Amino acid sequence: MSTLMAYIAGLLFGLGLAVSGMTDPARVLGFLDLFGAWDPTLIFVLGGAVVTNFFGYRLARRRPHPLFAAAFQLPTRRDLDGRLIGGAALFGIGWGLSGYCPGPAFASVAGITWPLVAMLAAMVAGWFLARALPSQG
């Protein structure tokens, strides 16, 4: 049941990205173009996500366990290491260059383009690189 719920959550996330226009890399690049033709649309999408998460997280934490799992799976590490900072920097650079982050990239696979292929290939290469680097945790 938890796998089905994860699948449904992923579909809802992808649908939300598509409806909000965040699968369009031009819109994301327009948001990042602060001194050109700036497009503030992404602020409203991000703001809606923050507000929804703020209240949803508090409601969920009042429960003894999730609806379809035995326990909550929350991260326990709170330190910042080179892998985290490096990964965040690479994520930001890739997002800024391509206009795609992983969610919109996967939601856009139906309309595959060469920039999308390049971004997905770089993301997969990053996964393998992250596995090859020694973990400090």
Score class of each variant (00 low, 15 high):
Ala6Glu: 07
Ala9Met: 03
Ala9Ile: 06
Leu11Asp: 12
Phe13Glu: 09
Leu17Phe: 11
Gly21Asp: 01
Gly21Val: 03
Thr23Leu: 04
Asp24Pro: 09
Pro25Leu: 02
Arg27Pro: 00
Leu29Val: 04
Gly30Gln: 08
Asp33Ile: 00
Asp33Lys: 04
Phe35Leu: 11
Gly36Lys: 07
Ala37Val: 03
Asp39Phe: 02
Thr41Met: 03
Leu42Cys: 05
Leu42Thr: 13
Val45Gln: 04
Leu46Asp: 10
Gly48Phe: 07
Ala49Ile: 10
Asn53Gln: 11
Phe54Ser: 03
Phe55Ala: 04
Arg61Ile: 04
His65Pro: 10
Phe68Arg: 11
Phe68Tyr: 15
Ala70Trp: 10
Leu74Val: 11
Pro75Leu: 10
Pro75Arg: 04
Arg78Val: 13
Asp79Ser: 12
Leu80Ser: 12
Leu84Thr: 11
Ile85Cys: 11
Gly86Ile: 01
Gly87Lys: 06
Gly87Met: 06
Ala89Thr: 13
Phe91Val: 04
Gly92Cys: 13
Ile93Leu: 15
Ile93Gln: 04
Gly99Thr: 09
Tyr100Lys: 01
Phe106His: 05
Ser108Thr: 03
Ser108Glu: 06
Ala110Phe: 12
Ala110Gly: 12
Gly111Asn: 15
Pro115Cys: 01
Val117Ala: 12
Met119Ala: 12
Met119Trp: 14
Ala121Thr: 13
Ala122Tyr: 05
Ala122Leu: 15
Val124His: 00
Val124Lys: 01
Trp127Asp: 07
Trp127Pro: 01
Ala132Cys: 01
Ala132Ser: 09
Leu133Ser: 03
Leu133Met: 11
Pro134Leu: 06
Gln136Arg: 15
